[in-house]
Amino acid sequence: ENVVSAPMPGKVLRVLVRVGDRVRVGQGLLVLEAMKMENEIPSPRDGVVKRILVKEGEIVDTGQPKIELG
């Protein structure tokens, strides 16, 4: 899985990584606000952040790609 998608609709509060960052499985990639709760979205695997496809403040839909890992 190279693309991390939104598990639920919500607002991107914070992006916790930058392009080029090495990430580990379970590491937080971003914080999504859904139903007035903050949810940290974890990396599904070890890898390197290739692209960030969302911006802080953006509203995302379920299944929308957010971060691409290499």
Rank of each mutant, 00 (worst) to 15 (best):
G10R: 00
E68M: 13
R18F: 05
E40M: 14
I67P: 02
I52F: 00
L32F: 11
V3Q: 08
E40V: 15
V25N: 09
R51A: 12
P9C: 09
G47I: 03
K36M: 14
V54D: 01
P44A: 04
P42N: 10
V49G: 00
V54R: 00
S5Q: 09
D46H: 08
L30C: 07
R22M: 13
R22Y: 14
I59V: 12
V60F: 03
K66T: 15
K11V: 10
A6L: 06
R24Q: 12
V15A: 00
I59C: 13
I59N: 11
P65G: 11
M8Y: 15
K50H: 10
V4T: 04
V49M: 00
Q64L: 06
G28S: 12
P44F: 06
V31E: 02
I67T: 02
P44R: 04
Q27W: 01
E40R: 08
V4D: 03
M35C: 14
G57V: 03
K36T: 11
L53R: 04
V54L: 03
V4I: 12
P9R: 12
V4M: 05
V60Y: 05
P7C: 12
P9T: 08
Q27P: 02
E40W: 12
K66W: 15
V3G: 05
K36L: 13
D61I: 14
E40D: 06
E68A: 09
Q64V: 08
S43T: 05
V25W: 08
Q27K: 05
R45M: 14
G63T: 06
V49T: 02
L16S: 04
N39L: 15
E58F: 05
V17N: 00
A6Q: 04
E38V: 11
G63H: 10
V3R: 06
V23W: 02
G28N: 10
V3C: 13
R18K: 14
E38N: 08
G47L: 02
G10W: 04
V31Q: 01
V15H: 02
V31R: 01
M37G: 13
I41Q: 02
V23L: 03
P42C: 14
S5I: 13
L69S: 02
V17H: 00
V4G: 04
K50G: 05
V48S: 06
P44N: 05
E40C: 15
E56C: 07
L32K: 00
I67C: 06
L69A: 03
K50I: 15
R51H: 08
L16M: 09
Q64D: 10
R45E: 05
V17Y: 00
G28Y: 07
G26K: 05
R14D: 07
D61P: 06
D61M: 14
R14A: 09
M8C: 12
I59M: 14
K11I: 11
R18V: 12
A34Q: 09
R24A: 11
V31D: 02
N2H: 14
K55F: 11
N2W: 15
K66I: 15
E56L: 10
I59P: 06
G26S: 06
